[in-house]
Write a protein that binds this DNA or RNA. Structure first.
Lengths: 225, 225
DNA sequence: TGTACATCAGTGAACGCGCGTTCACTGATGTAC
DNA sequence: TGTACATCAGTGAACGCGCGTTCACTGATGTAC
């Protein structure tokens, strides 16, 4: 048996990749995008059919199997892509930290604008977090826990949060994540052109986070743990 | 045309209702219960088929139409039933108020135990809140807004919350509702027999609410509004 | 470079299946008198 | 109370349809020499 391709062609970032591979990746992306587009509006992922997705991607149903074993595997890929997007944002925020003035309000603003810009991915996360198939749902929960932990780590150095032990920091981070996901759901449901409504939601989320941080400044973790 | 029945037979609480009506109500309930049972686990409402529901209810598919015009109408009925359950609890809590000591912690406990006891209804709300059909989703959002407003009204008299105007009280109530829904989702996903895990979630939710109330005691609404 | 062969993404037809909905029906229950 | 008729919840068969999956295939791209 001969080698399919040179070793380096396997890893796209290090080789010309070839016409065939490039086309294959394009079709794969068309399938993922098709699913996200069908999810926009009131559909849920579990109600999408493989044939629908293939049709919107402009490909025959059987071609789907060249890329995924079934809809569930496609769903897992969407989870990866969606959280890749989220982690990118977190990394960006960490490498170019905001000035401390209005830090909370500006962080909320940054996050919600990002959610609006990546509407389809965030919509997918919000929906499938609670109603997806077991594997997709568990993958999303795992990522959200990871995100909560990262947030807790980022919060730890703040002088006003000296009163927290590790467990309680994660408790607080969970509250923040819940509040942000809640605001994200409102944003995703709002009319995209209703600037006043969007501003109202941003303000609501900012106040909720400020309320949390106001409480946090008073918090004293039990010294025992 | 003759009258179908005596006038009083229309309203079940005031009349013997008749054998036929009673059986019809029993079948209707069997259909609603069948949907809730099928939803337990990883199914989502929009992935249920009318035939499946009819089968679990022990009835032929065509009989479904004697009770609902389609799955969406059945979904709306589930929304009504689920929130009826929730409002009952709120009314109970209001008529037999807890003593002020550990008020927050005890309220969380009461709520989460209620959610565990009405597992299927709360699961339905949690799932369809984000991923249901348009009408079901909007009905759930409306009920959650109503619940938030009621909670804001209940919170208003507390001396420590003097610093709040009406808008900010709803903002805080929204944060509380978000946190409770988050904890409910964890509870619904947890193994029902894992007492330690359930206790851990209860404790987490209690701390989150105490953090919110700690912040609330410091809050000053802008006097302008 | 040119040639002969291998690979494989995408095609198009076919399959059996469960779906929502319709229909004429049955027979127990309800009502008028 | 008894009878004759009306109502209507539930039945069972039928329909056309989109579903997931399989299969042998095609033809452009890739590889060996």
């Amino acid at each position: 048996m001969r080698l399919k391709r040179t070793a380096s062609a396997e890893t796209p970032e290090s080789a010309p990749a070839g016409v065939r591979d490039e086309r294959k990746q394009r079709t794969r992306k068309a399938l993922l995008d098709a699913a996200l587009i069908l999810l926009d509006g009131e559909r849920s992922f579990s109600s999408l059919s493989l044939r629908e997705v293939a049709k919107v991607a402009g490909v025959v149903p059987a071609a789907f199997y060249r890329h995924f074993t079934g809809m569930d595997e496609l769903g897992m890929s969407l989870v990866d892509d969606s959280f890749h997007t989220l982690h990118q944002m977190m990394r960006g925020a960490r490498s170019a930290p905001l000035p401390p003035a209005n830090l909370v309000a500006r962080s909320v603003e940054t996050f919600l604008l990002y959610a609006q810009a990546h509407r389809l991915h965030f919509q997918f996360i919000a929906k499938e977090r609670v109603s997806g198939s077991s594997s997709v749902r568990l993958a999303i929960r795992k990522e959200l826990r990871l995100w909560t932990s990262e947030l807790a780590t980022d919060l730890a150095p703040f002088p006003k949060l000296k009163g927290f032990n590790g467990d309680d920091l994660r408790m607080m981070a969970g509250l923040v994540v819940n509040a942000m996901m809640g605001a994200t759901e409102l944003i995703l449901d709002a009319d995209i052109n209703d600037a006043a409504e969007l501003a109202r939601i941003h303000q609501l989320a900012q106040k909720q986070l400020m309320l949390i941080f106001l409480g946090a400044a008073q918090w004293k973790s039990k010294p025992a743990q």
